[in-house]
Write a protein that binds this DNA or RNA. Sequence first.
DNA 1: ATAGGGCAAGCAAGATCATTGCGTAAATCT
DNA 2: AGATTTACGCAATGATCTTGCTTGCCCTAT
Lengths: 170, 170
Amino acid sequence: MRRVKLDRIDRRILRDLQDNGRMTNVELANRAGISAPPCLRRVRALEEAGFIRGYHAEVAPEHLGFTVTIYAHVGLTSQAEADLARFEQMVGQWPEVRECHMLMGEADFLLKIVAKDWDAFQRFLTSKLTPAPLVSNVKTALVIRTRKRLPGVPIDEAPEDDDEDEVEEG
Amino acid sequence: MRRVKLDRIDRRILRDLQDNGRMTNVELANRAGISAPPCLRRVRALEEAGFIRGYHAEVAPEHLGFTVTIYAHVGLTSQAEADLARFEQMVGQWPEVRECHMLMGEADFLLKIVAKDWDAFQRFLTSKLTPAPLVSNVKTALVIRTRKRLPGVPIDEAPEDDDEDEVEEG
DNA sequence: ATAGGGCAAGCAAGATCATTGCGTAAATCT
DNA sequence: AGATTTACGCAATGATCTTGCTTGCCCTAT
């Protein structure tokens, strides 16, 4: 069980990579105030330790024909863990569903769904989601516009307390 | 007004970069079946045309101490466009709010909020969001777990109809 | 048909970047 | 204090990025 601590340099690296995932290692190093080799070693260590789950291009949905984004609240008929997992496994196979969050309270989920147009979403809703087993009720909310869309979390230069963040690695 | 069309190669590039934003251009080119130079030119063109909004490292919130994720439905007292914009401008300045989606129907928003712990979220809620001007009512939903978190949109090898996607660029 | 223009691909070369090995300094532990 | 660990920086190698140039293809207008 190795411990990984984050100092100011690590946080700066994470912040910069969260903001620009294709930043070159040399620029990353310059911003962090160290030379390239240790900077790359830190990045690799952060990846290994699970601080960085991956890198993704942020594509414009409307440019690819996806004009409809919906958030759907889904209530289930059962809240047994096996049923919750079965539902998650099912939505995991639907490409229209991009995110699946289990919410506090009764057995319900919040799904983020994208579709090319309203008709395609209706087809998904009526032929896939609503008739699915375990699904009790579905409430959908169409997204009109999105004015803020920041990735991940806010990463300050320094943590609020004096200690450094640390995390256990399996 | 330049037109940009997407062929199978462009879609493959977008799909691969959405999946791995740090894929090298040579591997991207190999997967797409073309050589590196035209592949890089396509990537640049896709960026210029707005198909790619940016690149981001996906960081693990809990590793950085953010153990709480909340979705909040916020209803406003006014749905005049100026007030909606004012609300969006306000949440834009709150680092805890990562996403702000305006929903269909009455003037309400869906916010994605992250916080280091439940207490920090309570402070945000009671000292920032709830007392803010225009805010009528707030309903929060704590995220227990997230089992699906895919970026962007599903990108197939070929579009459903025979035509190629095209988009206007300003 | 055939010549000309417009794309887009591939090759090649130079510049930049990533990556490794090695030596050294600072911090930690005994 | 001495030993150990850790992480930095330098230097060198290999890979990648990037640009200019040339070639081939398709479309269009003679």
